[in-house]
Design a binder for these strands. Structure first.
Lengths: 244, 244
DNA sequence: ATAATAGTGTCTATCAGACACTATTCT
DNA sequence: AGAATAGTGTCTGATAGACACTATTAT
């Protein structure tokens, strides 16, 4: 067996983004309508190939978010979700995609851009139930992203990332209810969330008003991991179902 | 701006494996001594490039485990750990590596193979503290793998994967103590682990003996996720420290 | 007043952790 | 008997969940 100069095969590397936000008390994901083949005209996650072979993966993710949806995500925390590289998932050849997850407060309306003829927020319920057709294996990537968000809400202060810089406790509760798909007792939630050290801190006794007693405002505390964790109830009744 | 046929850049794709096992009540990771440049002679995780451009990532991981360490892992559960693709992490060019994690009971001694001049089990303590030099960014990959194993022990029945087909409760406790690096109360552990439905089931009243009262044997139960989870105590005293 | 939301007090069932105690083997 | 490990019983403090009740706003 001579020492022949075998060269390993190269693959195309892409990034895909699962950007989750809360709109109308409903967990929504950013989708774009593909403007190019394959799957032209089908909804898909924003994403695309590396620009050049030395581009950082995270940088590529941010660039795609800007290019395809017109969203500047400099302050957005992107977290690696996983690799999706099954042979045959892309008709163009061997494409391995690295998926990133981000959680954001109410973002501006996205703007369609390069390679995307449209960009819009879509409730995850539709994407998860399969009623919305999606390109490639993006159905699974979204499912994994939502599941990741659910468990991160238990053990990290991620929920505050869905809110603006200041928020009321019931707004925070909306986040948990929408992502987990459950209804929580407001009184117990109120005490629980305040008892976790460093999770939320009161903002300058400011207040806000809608149609009841004004609520105290809070901002995200210094802790990123929650001790003890928020306990997710056994998912018996989905919130959407309960509200319908 | 004409529609020029831009071609996305290709990258080299590799897989790396973090294989964890328990030996001498100590969490150990499988390392190989690299037989080729770069980093020839340095310890590294088993792994390597895809064989051909259509090879499945998981299949590549299993193949490398066989080739580099002589371990047949057909029954081993490999779980995706993450992607490590920082530019410059590999002097040969842009190499993106997908890391996989596996947990195994006492495996046979590994056998060095292709591209690996040696293969051995190494306590994770050394690899984590940085006293053992490692190739590439494998130090970080191992740290991520151990951290993943720690949290998986809380919420999944993974601990049984460290044991053989049947095991005693104190053997299972050794797993938790070694991976978490804490000491647990045997009496409380005994009841706790039995109270989690479907975690472990008694094996035909068989028994085993060493230097005390024989212990009942159990095997892994049907559940893979634990409700309620095993609670990891706030890591105050590391077990290694406590034993020294 | 009534509706609506914010926030507090309190009870109870459950559970983690501490630890005394019994059981079964070996030397 | 004594040492060693397996396994049980029980107490206590913390907490999740249920829910009555008070507080503060708008109409």
């Amino acid at each position: 067996m001579p020492d022949d100069p075998w060269v390993p095969p190269a693959v195309l590397l892409a990034v895909d983004l699962v950007i989750l936000t809360l709109r109308d008390s409903c967990l929504q994901v950013l989708l774009v309508e593909r403007g190019v083949d394959p799957h032209r005209g089908t909804l898909a996650l924003p994403g695309g190939f590396l620009n050049h072979s030395e581009e950082d993966l995270l940088a590529a993710a941010r660039r795609e978010l800007s290019e395809e949806a017109g969203l500047e995500a400099d302050h957005l925390h992107l977290e690696q979700l996983g690799v999706y590289g099954a042979p045959g998932r892309d008709p163009r050849g061997r494409v391995v995609s690295v998926a990133y997850l981000a959680i954001a407060p109410r973002l501006p309306e996205p703007i369609a851009g390069t390679d995307a003829s449209d960009a819009c927020w879509t409730p995850t319920a539709g994407a998860l139930s399969g009623t919305v057709p999606l390109a490639f294996d993006h159905h699974r990537i979204i499912a994994d992203g939502v599941e990741r968000a659910r468990t991160k809400l238990e053990h990290s202060a991620l929920a505050t990332a869905f809110c603006g810089p200041t928020f009321t406790i019931s707004e925070l509760q909306d986040v948990y209810e929408a992502v987990w798909g459950v209804l929580l007792d407001p009184r117990n939630f109120y005490r629980k969330v305040q008892s976790v050290a460093g999770f939320i801190v009161p903002a300058d006794r400011t207040r806000k008003t809608d149609t009841g007693r004004p609520a105290r405002l809070f901002r995200a505390g210094p802790r990123t991991t929650l001790h003890p964790p928020m306990t997710r109830p056994a998912s018996s009744a989905e919130k959407e179902t309960a509200e319908a």
